[in-house]
């Protein structure tokens, strides 16, 4: 594309991507909860976390953030789990941080882009889940060790592994359809 990608744009197109992303994240989170990946131990594995990360990379940080933030809210609302602002924000960051590389990507199948996305997936998981876990200290009064072992590590490890594997697969698939849209 000849025009430069805007990092923080939020027009009709981004509204749609963000809404679709959030709905998709919620649906896949619930679906994969029900499927219960066998042999994953006591860590709750959620392959759907790749959705906010990928939507960030493909459509920018705002879309990534809303996908994770609203998607997590919807997944919790639909499962009847309530509303947990700090975990929702953490999920938003899972999408926002990989979204920072969005303007630099020319080809979604180039290994350069994929490596960059992978690094930001790790960063996003670290910061997103770190923030959510730390807020648990303030909200629940747990101490640092508890937060690290009961909250942070399980969430971080699960998100990183799922993201590292699935985000590149989604990017390669997306590379094949990216040229099919005529819209700006």
């Amino acid at each position: 594309m000849e025009e430069k990608k805007k990092l923080w744009g939020f027009e009709t197109k981004q509204v749609v991507y963000a809404a679709i992303g959030a709905a998709l994240y919620a649906v896949l989170a619930i679906a994969t909860n029900m499927l219960q990946l066998p042999g994953a131990g006591n860590v709750s594995f959620r392959p759907a976390v790749a959705i906010p990360m990928f939507f960030g990379v493909a459509f920018g940080p705002i879309v990534g953030f809303i996908t994770g933030f609203v998607g997590n809210i919807l997944a919790d609302l639909l499962s009847g789990y309530g509303f947990w602002l700090w975990w929702d924000l953490g999920n938003g960051l899972l999408g926002l941080i990989p979204g920072l590389i969005y303007p630099t990507i020319e080809s979604y199948r180039a290994s350069k882009s994929i490596w960059r996305a992978e690094i930001f997936v790790v960063l996003g998981s670290l910061i997103g889940m770190g923030l959510a876990s730390i807020s648990e200290m303030w909200v629940s009064g747990a101490d640092m060790n508890t937060v690290i072992f009961a909250n942070f590590l399980p969430a971080f490890i699960s998100d990183v592994i799922n993201g590292l594997i699935l985000v590149p697969l989604l990017m390669i698939a997306y590379a094949a359809i990216v040229e099919r849209s005529g819209r700006d």
Binding site: V15, A19, I20, A22, A23, L24, A26, G71, L74, L78
Partner: peptide, 11 residues
């Protein structure tokens, strides 16, 4: 605000 509404529509 509308984004949340649209997301709900597509679930």
């Amino acid at each position: 605000a509308y984004t949340t509404e649209l997301a709900i529509r597509f679930i």
